[in-house]
Design a protein around this nucleic acid. Structure first.
Lengths: 336, 336
DNA sequence: CTGAAAGCGCTTACAG
DNA sequence: CTGAAAGCGCTTACAG
C-alpha cells in the first residue's frame, strides 16, 4: 500500500473519481449524492486511511490552505502567544500556518513576503515601516492580507490591533487618579504607528490634567540588541529623581526599567509606581508584581484570522478593508 | 501579466522549458549548459519576476520543501526560541516551517502528525509519551523524523536534546561545592525521559556525597493549567523549613517556586540558594537574578535541522539513527 | 447521479 | 545542448 490516489479509492468503492472528490470536499449535498453513497465512500476512505494529496489539489485549485504569519520576532513572548492563537484559529478552518521573523529588518521582511507569496493563500503581517512597498505589491496582486499589531494609516489594508491610544490613556488616567503628578513615559523613538499612538495618548492625557512635562518623556532609538535599552533608562532615572510614576510603552522597556529601578534602589511602588504595556511572565511573577496594559492576544488572533479567511473566501469582492481595534485590558497588580 | 509559467519563460527566452527547469534547479552544470545560456535564462527570470509554482513541483517530485515542527507549546519561551532558530536554519536550506502545539495532549499530537504527514518532507517533534505510536507509524512510512527535547529510549529514532543528566549533575555539584547540605529538588512527576534523567542526576549526585534525603524531593503531577503547580510548592516549603538550596527542574517550576519563596519571606540567596533548569527573561531580570542550567537553543535547532535534512536528502539509506546530546551551560547569577 | 477527459505547472527520461 | 511528451493527483465542466 504505497500511495493511494483518488482513483484507487474510486476503484475500491466502485464509483467514479469525481464522486470521491465530491465526498471529500463536502460537496455531496450540492451534488445530490445519496446518503448511502456518501457513507459507503466515507467508509472506504476511512478503512484505507486515504488522505488526498494537497499539492495536487493546490495545483488544480490554486489554493494552498496555508497562511503566512510574518511577525517581528517569534521568540518574543507576545508574538509567540499570537502565533499559538493564530495556529488554533487557522486549524479550525483547515488551514496550516508557516511563519517567519522580520526582526524589524525591512529587507528580511520583504524577502519573506516574496518567498511565501506563491505558497500561501493569505498573509498575517506585522509590518516594519519599510515593508510598505512589499505589502502594497501583494495587495495589488490581490493577495489577501491582514496587518496585525500595527498598520499603515494612509493605506486601505485591513488590520487588527489593540487600541494603543485607549490603553495608554487608561493607564495614564489610572496613575493620575492615584494622585501621581510626575509621571514619566518611556517609549521607543520610532515612526511606527503603534508607538506614535502610545505617545500621543500619554501627551493628550497628561495635558488634559495640566501635568505634561516634556522632560519626563524618554524616547529611545530602536536597538537591534535589546540590551542597548538599559543604559538609556538608567541615565534617565539618575537625572529625573523626583518622578512618582513610570509608564513603559513596551514589554522590553518595562523589563529593563524595573531592573534599573532596583539597581538604583528605588522601591516599587512606594518610591515610584510602575506600569507597562504588554503582559509577560516577568510582570506576573515579579515581586512586586507589575500592573500592565494587556493586549488580548487570543481576540486579536481570532479576529485577524477571521478577516483573512473572509478575504480568501470571497475573492474579487471589492470589499471595504476593515480596521479593528481591540480594547486593551488594564490589569492592576502590586506595582501601583 | 497574470501567472507566468515555465513555458512562458522558455518562450520569452527562446529556449526549451527543460532548459529553464535546469537553470532554476541549479542543474545547469550537470547538464552542461553553456554559461551564456544560463545567464540569459537567469536574466529573463529576473526581469519577469517569475517564481516557480511549488505545488506543481511538489506534485511532480513528491517534495514539499516544508518541515513540520511539532512542539509542546509554541507560546512557551523555550519552544518559541527554538522555533525561531529552526526557522532560520531551515530557511538557509530553502525550507519553510509549519508548526503545531500538542500541549502534551497525545491525541492532539497524533492528529497533528496525521494532518501534516503528507504535507511536509520531515518532522521535528517534541513528542509526548503517547505519541510513540504516531511517531513509529511515520517512521515505518520512511518519513524523516528528528525528535527534540526528549526521545524514546527504546526506539531507534534520531534525537537532539540537551544533556539533561549532565545539566542537573553540574548544577547539583555547584550547590554542593557551595557547602549546601540540604538541597531540595522540585520536579514534575512524569514518565518522560528528560524529566526522569534530571531526577536520576540529582539522586546520583547527592548520594555520591552522602547528602541524599528522599523527603527533599518534590514531584508534582503535570498540570494542564500551570498555575496548579503553585500550591504544591508552597506546601512543600512550609514543611521543609531547613533546606539551604532548591533546584527547580523546569522553568515554570522555578517561576512559581521563586514566587512562593518571596511570599514566605525566604530571602534568596541568604535564606536559600536557588537554581533552575532553562533560562528565561524572568530569571535574567529577577532580583536577585537566578542562576540557571541553560539549554543552548540555537545549537539544538541547528543540529536537529541538520540531521533532518540529512535524512531528507538521502532517502533509502539505512543510516544508523543518531542521538545527539548538547552540553548544557551553567549560568551563575546572584541567586546562589 | 455517473464516467471519461482536460488541464493545473512542473520535472524528467528520451530521442535527436 | 534542444524539444516534444508523459505523468504526478487532483477538480471540474460536460455529456449522458
Amino acid at each position: 500500500m504505497k500511495h493511494l490516489s483518488i482513483k484507487d479509492i474510486a476503484r475500491i468503492a466502485g464509483v467514479a473519481p469525481s464522486t470521491v472528490s465530491f465526498v471529500i470536499n463536502g460537496r455531496h449535498e450540492e451534488m445530490r449524492l445519496s446518503k448511502e453513497m456518501v457513507k459507503h465512500v466515507q467508509a472506504v476512505i476511512k478503512k484505507t486511511g486515504y488522505t488526498p494529496n494537497r499539492a495536487a489539489a493546490s495545483l488544480r485549485t490554486g489554493k494552498t490552505h496555508v497562511i503566512g504569519l510574518i511577525v517581528e520576532d517569534i521568540a518574543n513572548s507576545f508574538f509567540a502567544s499570537l502565533a499559538k492563537s493564530v495556529e488554533l484559529a487557522a486549524a479550525k478552518a483547515g488551514y496550516r500556518v508557516v511563519y517567519g521573523s522580520t526582526e524589524n529588518n525591512d529587507t528580511k521582511g520583504n524577502d519573506l513576503i516574496q518567498l511565501l507569496a506563491k505558497q500561501v493563500d493569505g498573509f498575517l503581517i506585522t509590518p516594519s515601516t519599510g515593508m510598505k512597498a512589499g505589502v502594497l505589491a501583494l495587495r495589488k496582486n490581490r493577495k489577501p492580507i491582514v496587518l496585525i499589531d500595527r498598520y499603515f494609516p494612509d493605506e486601505e489594508i485591513s488590520f487588527v490591533l489593540v487600541d494603543n491610544y485607549a490603553g495608554i490613556r487608561e493607564g495614564t488616567q489610572y496613575l493620575i487618579n492615584k494622585k501621581k503628578k510626575k509621571i514619566a513615559f518611556v517609549n521607543l523613538d520610532m515612526d511606527q504607528v503603534q508607538i506614535q499612538e502610545r505617545e500621543r495618548a500619554f501627551v493628550d492625557t497628561m495635558k488634559a490634567h495640566g501635568l505634561f512635562q516634556k522632560k519626563l518623556m524618554l524616547k529611545i532609538p530602536y536597538c537591534q540588541d535589546r540590551t542597548g535599552y538599559a543604559p538609556h533608562i538608567e541615565k534617565f532615572l539618575e537625572k529625573q529623581k523626583d518622578i512618582d510614576a513610570i509608564l513603559f510603552a513596551t514589554n522590553y522597556l518595562g523589563m529593563f526599567g524595573i531592573k534599573a529601578l532596583k539597581e538604583q534602589e528605588i522601591v516599587i511602588p512606594d518610591g515610584v509606581a510602575v506600569m507597562s504595556f504588554d503582559d509577560t511572565d516577568l510582570f506576573r511573577f515579579s515581586s512586586p508584581s507589575i500592573s500592565v496594559i494587556s493586549q488580548p492576544v487570543q481576540e486579536i488572533a481570532s479576529q485577524a484570522v477571521g478577516l483573512l479567511l473572509d478575504q480568501i473566501n470571497s475573492p474579487g469582492t471589492k470589499r471595504k478593508q476593515k480596521g479593528v481595534l481591540i480594547p486593551p485590558e488594564l490589569i492592576i497588580r502590586e506595582s501601583v
